[in-house]
Write a protein that binds this DNA or RNA. Structure first.
Length: 337
DNA sequence: TCTGGGGTCCTAGGACCC
DNA sequence: TCTGGGGTCCTAGGACCC
């Protein structure tokens, strides 16, 4: 039996802990906190969601739809700190814990009454961090994760092979994690809109449209099947980088080059801090209005040295024709692992 | 009304080798 | 004038997740 613990409105909840006077108000967290700048909504409070505000929406749009909302800057260190507290509480239980993100984790039980454990977990997290969470119970990670979404906010929900079909069949296909807007659209073109339809679809048709792996995997998740293990250790980091969207497009190629150099130096620093070596560097350029391209350059030798990273980044940059204004520059190191 | 930042994984196509 | 088949590796792009 697997539990999926998912914090409710995590980012907004952390902000409201720091500013209790904002409880009950329309709060929107994202970007610099200034809705006249480039950025998107990370999380909106329930009060703001009623105005159609949701994650990913441009801040400018959110300000239009909800002019009297309170806008707060995205505060990564605060969320990381809150997350660590929550995970420490979960680690205190005697079960295998997989941290799956800032605000979610899996617990693998062995024989204990899962509903009772779920309630214990909720009580412990709330008592020690002040944060509310939802808990899904399943026979695998997929079922548990889907169940926790159904349990929101603050509830407990159990899915298993006996009720998967009755609970899920009629729900839209994108209820399943792994199906986003594009796959939902492609499925709709095949006449598949709900989970039941996907479960009954022909594997051949799905593989033809989505490729061999994704095609058969989609059909599996629609049937509630998932064999991925709960893994307590963090998987090795594969890449590490930074990207910046500029408030004003960079029109000058020299400015772009300077930014690539700056970002490469930051990435080198981060590599050294993490004790990792890069084997190649990817430079990403997003041209105005919104066209993104990337080029990769291999390092002469595995390294975390600033000079090596910078040289490779500039080599990659040379492959771009910088003949248009640039709105984003990114540098990412691919690691040796 | 313009569209963040940090990641992972998969796919398609081309180069190359035997 | 027309050009196999099997395999690997690399690159670029895309979809998704939080």
């Amino acid at each position: 039996v697997i539990l999926h613990v998912d914090l409710d409105q995590f980012i907004a909840a952390v902000e409201l802990q720091h500013r209790p006077e904002l409880r009950g108000r329309r709060v929107i967290v994202g970007g610099s906190g200034d809705p006249s700048t480039r950025g998107v909504v990370a999380t909106a409070s329930y009060e703001a969601r009623r105005f159609g505000i949701d994650s990913g929406m441009p801040l400018r749009t959110a300000a239009h739809r909800c002019p009297d909302a309170v806008f707060l800057a995205f505060d990564r260190p605060a969320y990381q700190a809150a997350s660590s507290e929550v995970m420490a509480v979960l680690a205190g239980f005697p079960w295998t814990l997989e941290v799956a993100g800032w605000d979610e984790a899996y617990l693998e039980l062995n024989g204990d009454a899962p509903e009772r454990v779920a309630a214990d977990v909720q009580r412990a997290v709330l008592g020690r961090t002040g944060l509310s969470c939802s808990v899904g119970i399943g026979e695998n990670k997929l079922q548990a994760k889907v169940a926790s979404a159904l349990a929101k906010p603050g509830g407990i929900c159990r899915l298993g092979s006996e009720n998967w079909t009755s609970v899920m069949d009629q729900r839209p296909a994108d209820t399943l994690p792994g199906i986003g807007p594009k796959r939902k659209q492609l499925l709709a073109e095949l006449g598949i809109t709900d989970v039941g339809g996907l479960a009954r679809a022909s594997e051949e048709t799905l593989c033809e449209r989505f490729g061999p792996n994704i095609g058969s995997w989609l059909r599996q998740i629609a049937r509630g099947i998932d064999e991925t293990p709960v893994r307590p250790e963090h998987p090795p980091v594969r890449s590490l980088g930074h990207q910046i969207t500029y408030q004003h497009d960079l029109a000058d190629p020299v400015a772009v080059e300077l930014e690539v150099t700056r970002l490469a130096a930051t990435v080198a620093q981060d590599l050294q801090t993490a004790g990792k070596l890069a084997q190649s560097v990817v430079v990403v350029i997003r041209f105005a209005p919104f066209e993104t391209h990337g080029h990769i350059a291999r390092l002469g030798r595995r390294s975390a040295e600033e000079s090596q990273l910078t040289a490779a980044a500039l080599t990659a940059l040379e492959r771009f024709e910088l003949d248009r204004p640039v709105r984003l520059v990114g540098v990412r190191a691919e690691l040796v692992f």
